[in-house]
Design a binder for these strands. Structure first.
Lengths: 185, 185
DNA sequence: CAGATGTGTGTACGTTCGTACACACTCAGA
DNA sequence: TCTGAGTGTGTACGAACGTACACACATCTG
């Protein structure tokens, strides 16, 4: 059954462990994340975690870093695709309202990351990098003050919405973004 | 030494335990909050926690409920004091920029509460109540769409700012709030 | 004063955790 | 074929945890 292999048996295992870690955090929160749950989720033996990672803290740090990177890429792709300012406003509206960026799972993970970053300098640095990159993506279309305000809206709106029963009003979001971009030119 | 007493030795103990719980959460995060740390912080014996509360989860739930209530009061007081819309805009600016509401400690606790609420229905309900009340306070001065947008800004701006080195630009915040209130009349 | 009742505490128990580590296995080079 | 280095795993251990509970004390009732 086992084919020929040179050095490592499962080179993708580290990434699979990190993905499993995010799944566990999304379901149980950081406070309910343990080696054993991660191992079960990833389908790897317990010893595999201590073999690939120094500690549970390392795993969580790298998992959050991985998440921030992937979100940063999607963020950047959505904004660089916009040719002009109206299109950029639409893109931002999509980021806030759409199901691709502000998916419930992503919001839960983002909350966990924000909370954890307050007590872990490594995760705090990952977070700062991701915020810096997202603001740079915005800066291609908006003035510096507008970037700050829009950034705050992208942050706060989906988070508030996560606790509402009803869906988000897309036109209202669009109007707000446009108003801010217009007045803070 | 001990004076006369009727029934309870220390009627304020429950509240002191809850305050200590918030202190521990602020310092170590929910994931680092334990009975023993809370007891040490509050200066009470370990058994006192299981005597007054059913479980650690209960303690955390009540601590967050207490925090939400006290923040809700400050929030409400700041907004009802404003006589007209410009004053309300100034009050909102104070909430975002001031050191009374968006103190670092409060932000850390808020992050923790948001994260924990995703995995605990009781805390989620406390959170929804506090959001509902804060929006009601806003509704005394702004239109319903403007409330939504301003709420998102109050949410997102201090949270983003928490990760910046430099202080918040008060004029920019004021201008954004005014613009939103004006355009979403 | 004697019992009853409710308040409050120190300690101990079973569980679960993070981590260490002895050991098995694979394969390149000699 | 043999060997050594690197890869990967099952198990075990000390620490810390949440919780239970026997017990001490103060107060009230009669």
């Amino acid at each position: 059954m086992g084919g020929p292999r040179k050095v490592a048996n499962d080179p993708l295992r580290k990434q699979r462990i990190l993905d499993a870690t995010l799944a566990v955090i999304a379901e149980h929160g950081v406070h309910g994340t343990t080696h054993r749950r991660i191992a079960a989720e990833a389908g790897v033996p317990l010893g595999s975690l201590t073999y690939h990672f120094g500690s549970l803290g390392d795993i969580i740090e790298q998992a959050f870093a991985r998440m921030a990177e992937s979100m940063s890429e999607r963020y950047h792709a959505a904004l660089t695709a916009a040719p002009d300012e109206p299109a950029a406003c639409a893109a931002v509206t999509d980021l806030i309202c759409g199901d691709e960026y502000a998916t419930p799972r992503e919001l839960v993970l983002l909350h966990e990351m924000y909370a954890y970053a307050n007590h872990n300098t490594t995760v705090a640095e990952s977070l700062r990098q991701w915020l810096r990159r997202s603001r740079a993506s915005l800066a291609r279309h908006f003035s510096e003050p507008a970037c700050r305000a829009i950034d705050a809206l992208i942050e706060g709106w989906p988070m508030h919405q996560a606790w509402e029963r009803e869906p988000l009003n897309r036109d209202l979001v669009r109007a707000t973004i446009t108003a801010v971009a217009d007045r803070l030119r």
